[in-house]
Design a binder for these strands. Structure first.
Lengths: 139, 139
DNA sequence: TGACCTTTGCAATAGTGTTGCACCGGGTTG
DNA sequence: CAACCCGGTGCAACACTATTGCAAAGGTCA
């Protein structure tokens, strides 16, 4: 039996590829914007909120996705790149939250130039969000 | 009757200096870390949650304070500098959220080197948070 | 004093995040 | 086969944050 790409992607992060997890991953792969728990609830109405919540939590814990805190009030989730460690400062990229359409986009190609923190502060990871209007809504 | 510094600071942002507002502003001035609504509730137990909530909202609307979204799940608020406009890219500074003591600090002196957004994206303001351990907790 | 406006307090609600517990199906072991 | 274990899932409940509606309090001004 052949394995789908997403199943392999789950296994490569040591996550059991269950039906829900594979579906959620597939869904996240197609999205251009980061997804919230509410998005998943809407889209997978046959699955339980808790299951989707724990699915996202599992993705976070295994480094498959990262969490973004924008001004929408609810956490968003986006897939990490294959080789992403989500740690500072290597994987520090910018997100853009559109206050018009409430979408949050990952600009993984947009690395932040490095800067120095005050002494003794030990960074672990970062959450950078620019708020404004996205290319679609600004038109 | 002489006016206190905080009363003048409120008036300079066109905010009526009521008792609650002046007290909250005084409190925020003394804090080294950003405050949450829950912090205010704890400290001003004689005032109502709603009043404190609306006080912060007023501060935001008049550019007296800015909002920070860290991983704590609740919004934090910190005073803006006198000349701050809170707009991109001039007032883009870094915040540090300590996952150990849950405090969030403003590094207003730490400007981000500039970078370019994709075309047509119209930025308004930013929310940059580094998570890790603060100088106190790292010891 | 009375009309008016702002501020404040109280109550209630929506929404998000989170946990406990029970069930189910699959694999394992006696 | 039966007893068991275990991860995943679903249901219910709860905590906490954010937010709104409405009524009371207080200040201002004619």
């Amino acid at each position: 039996m052949e394995k789908s790409d997403s199943e392999q992607r789950l296994q490569s992060r040591s996550i059991q590829p269950t039906a829900v997890r594979t579906m959620v991953l597939d869904y996240m792969i197609e999205q251009k914007a980061a997804v919230s728990l509410a998005d998943l609830e809407d889209h997978f109405s046959r699955s339980d909120r808790t299951t989707l919540y724990r699915t996202l939590k599992t993705f976070l814990e295994h480094g498959l996705a990262h969490q973004i805190h924008d001004e929408s009030g609810s956490a968003k989730y986006a897939l990490c790149a294959e080789n992403c460690t989500c740690s500072y400062p290597d994987d520090l990229h910018v997100h853009f939250y559109c206050s018009s359409c409430q979408n949050t986009f990952c600009f993984t190609e947009l690395q932040i130039p490095s800067f120095n923190l005050p002494p003794k502060f030990q960074p672990d990871h970062g959450n950078f969000v620019i708020t404004g209007r996205c290319a679609n809504c600004a038109a």
